[in-house]
Structures are given as structure tokens and as C-alpha cells.
Design a protein around this nucleic acid. Sequence first.
DNA 1: TAGTCGTGGTT
DNA 2: TAACCAAGACT
Length: 295
Amino acid sequence: MNSTVLNSAYTAPILDWYDANARELPWRAPDATPWGILVSEIMLQQTPVARVLPVWDAWMTRWPEPAALAAEPSGEAVRAWGRLGYPRRALRLHESARAITERHGGEVPSSHEDLLALPGIGAYTAAAVASFAFKQRHAVLDTNVRRVLARLLSGDEYPPKSQTKAEVALAESLLPVDPPTAARWAVAAMELGALVCTARTPRCADCPVFDRCAWQRNGRPAYAGPPRRGQTYAGTDRQCRGRILAVLRAAEGPVPKPAIDVVWSDATQRERALDTLVADGLVAPLDDDHYTLPT
DNA sequence: TAGTCGTGGTT
DNA sequence: TAACCAAGACT
């Protein structure tokens, strides 16, 4: 028996499960554009679907194609980003819109290589857009898929802390040969991880591959590796930056420095945060002790 | 490669 | 209730 047949023992039930259980998300609709899919992928980085939905809708209404966003100042992207978090993503998405407009005739490129060259797009997002928007055959290895493969095939509760070559090789070995089917498999495996094979309380009773899950066969051993998290948020530069940026997003125009100072009491940390926001291009200093989103 | 980068819901 | 976690990228 060849490996394709062996793999289908895992892929086929998950593809069937996906057909019956997939969420209807706007970026999965038949009329979703590559641009809409790209925007969704950037917004979904480290961010739950529920929080992305309203922002994505507003974004696509305002900027239905890359050229529309490219014509605006980057600060408008930062403002429209709202409270999605990691606002440098908004900046990079704006840069990508300009690159797409200038280098690709306003059309989102379809090759993994060209996608990877865009700012804010790494290996995962390039593979995701190539797969979801253009139905190509790529290993789409996100946190969901890594967890599914760790449990199903490696017998571990969680994947390694950082992605390994072995994981990539495993994901590639599972890919259906037919590109459109590979694309459907990619989204199906992600959806299984998002809805059933979840991080903390997996719904194993609803799992289409429960009976061939290596983690189940192992007796569901608890994760034995080092702690997977660190870093509390309260009091960090990140929180301080978030407070400052929230002031600028809410303001119509330039904000006087004292209006920024009131959101954080530690002056040293506040100045450092403001400096890094300016260095990142998220905030523009004016010459009269005012600050604004970049224009 | 390990640290940094937001935000808010869930357990 | 504090910790965990959510379709990562970049340096």
C-alpha cells in the first residue's frame, strides 16, 4: 500500500467532517477575493475569529481592493485596525497593499515566493493565501494544524515550542496529491484544530479520527515539556504602547503631549514606549509637541 | 533563537 | 482569578 492510501486514512475522515461542520466565514465564501483572504489571514494572526469579523467587514467595505488602501495614509490603516492588537500588522498590510499596487498591477500575487516577499507575510501566511485563494498545494502549518498533528500522529498533547523541520516534513507527507484537495485539506485540518482538537479542552467525542489518534492510544499523557508561556501583560511596554495608541486612534487630529502623558504614570517607560512607537512608524511626532497617527 | 509585539475572552 | 490562549512575523 502506498503512502497516499495510508494518508487518506487520516485525511478522508477529516475532509468529510469539514464538509459537514465548517463555519461559514466571509473570507471562505465563494465570492471571497484573494485580497479579502489575505486581509483575513493578517488579521487572524494571533487573533480570534470573533474579534476579526466586524473589523474585516468594515475594512473590505472601505478598501475592497489593494489600490484603495494603498492610496490612503498608513495612519488610516492603523485607525481602522481598532483594537485587534499587534498594530504593526496594520502598517505592514498597508505596505503590502502599496507593494501589490506598484509591483503586481494591483492583483494579489499567487506564487508562494511573491507572497513571502510581502511585508508581514511569513511562511504560514504565504502558504495559507496560496492555498485558500489560489487552491495550490502547500503545507499550511499553523498552531491548530501543529497541535492536530502532534496529537494524531506523534501522540503528544502539544507540539514543540518552536516549529521543527520534522513537523514540516510530516505535514508535507500528508498532503493530498490533487492541489484543490490539498487546499481543502489545509483548511479542514485547521478547522478541526479550531473547533474540536482545541488546546485546553479538546472535544474528542466529536472527533472524526478519534479511533486512530496516537495521543488517545497513549492514554492522553499530559504535556511534559517546559512551560509554554511567560510574560504577564500588566505593566509591560506593550500595555503602555497600547494605551498611547488608543489615545491617538480616538482623536480626530494631532494630540498634545500632555493628553498622552496622562495614560501612563511611569515617565521613563512612557517615553520609551512613545519612542518605539515613533520608530515603528505607528506614531508621527509633529514639531509643536503634538503627536498623530502617520499621515 | 529567544524576545518582543496587543487585546480580551475563557477556564 | 490569574493564567492561558487566539489562522505569526520579525529581529
